[in-house]
């Protein structure tokens, strides 16, 4: 079997800081305590180490696991990535073993595009909702550009 690089929140706990990072371990623990936590997954610190070992590349087996877990959370949450009827939007955040507030990058609203934005608006006639969708969209483009492509703010 392949080495496991991705864990659902429901598969972890607070003692797995080294692997899941502080944030990931605590999200898992809060889920375990029955608290309201949006159910997602954590890509491990080992995957980060491999990213660097492999010359700053994500290996195909890790990529495959990420997509596999993405499908799992789509199912858990009843939404799908890029699906116009029930689109799943996610946040992508760093989480090291020790807290490093604000030192690394965060991306919110990932999964949005023109089509998704249009369909979201079509489902809700409230004009305020339209503003909300485009607000989310522009935040995403802004963060993504800044962080992913290293374009300045």
């Amino acid at each position: 079997m392949n080495h496991k690089y991705v864990y659902l929140f429901s598969e972890g706990n607070e003692n797995m800081r080294e692997l899941l990072g502080g944030k990931g371990a605590n999200l898992a623990q809060m889920s375990r305590l029955g608290m309201p936590v949006p159910q997602g997954f954590t890509v491990t610190t080992e995957a980060c180490t491999r990213y660097y070992d492999d010359g700053r590349k994500i290996a195909p087996d890790i990529e495959a696991q990420i997509y596999e877990y993405l499908a799992k959370i789509e199912e858990i949450n009843g939404k799908k990535f890029g699906d116009p009827t029930a689109p799943l939007l996610v946040s992508v955040r760093s989480g090291a073993r020790a807290s490093m507030p604000g030192m690394m990058d965060t991306i919110l609203n990932l999964g949005i595009n023109d089509e998704v934005a249009q369909s979201l608006i079509a489902g809700n006639p409230d004009p305020k909702f339209e503003r909300f969708v485009y607000d989310s969209y522009r935040r995403f483009i802004q963060m993504f550009s800044y962080v992913v492509m290293e374009i300045s703010k």
């Binding site: 929140f9 080294e18 692997l19 899941l20 990072g21 944030k23 990931g24 999200l27 949006p38 159910q39 997602g40 997954f41 954590t42 890509v43 491990t44 610190t45 080992e46 995957a47 980060c48 180490t49 990213y51 660097y52 700053r56 994500i58 990420i66 877990y69 993405l70 959370i73 949450n77 939404k79 799943l88 939007l89 996610v90 946040s91 992508v92 955040r93 760093s94 989480g95 090291a96 073993r97 020790a98 490093m100 030192m103 690394m104 990058d105 962080v147």
Partner: peptide
């Protein structure tokens, strides 16, 4: 992953004795 190696993270780690080798996890959440 790349941001683990950005200059401000490196400065922060040096100030707080956090080893570079630890790496960061990534949390994906709806």
């Amino acid at each position: 992953f790349r941001s683990w190696d950005n200059p401000r993270a490196n400065v922060y780690r040096r100030m707080n004795d956090i080893p570079y080798s630890w790496g960061t996890a990534v949390n994906v959440q709806p």
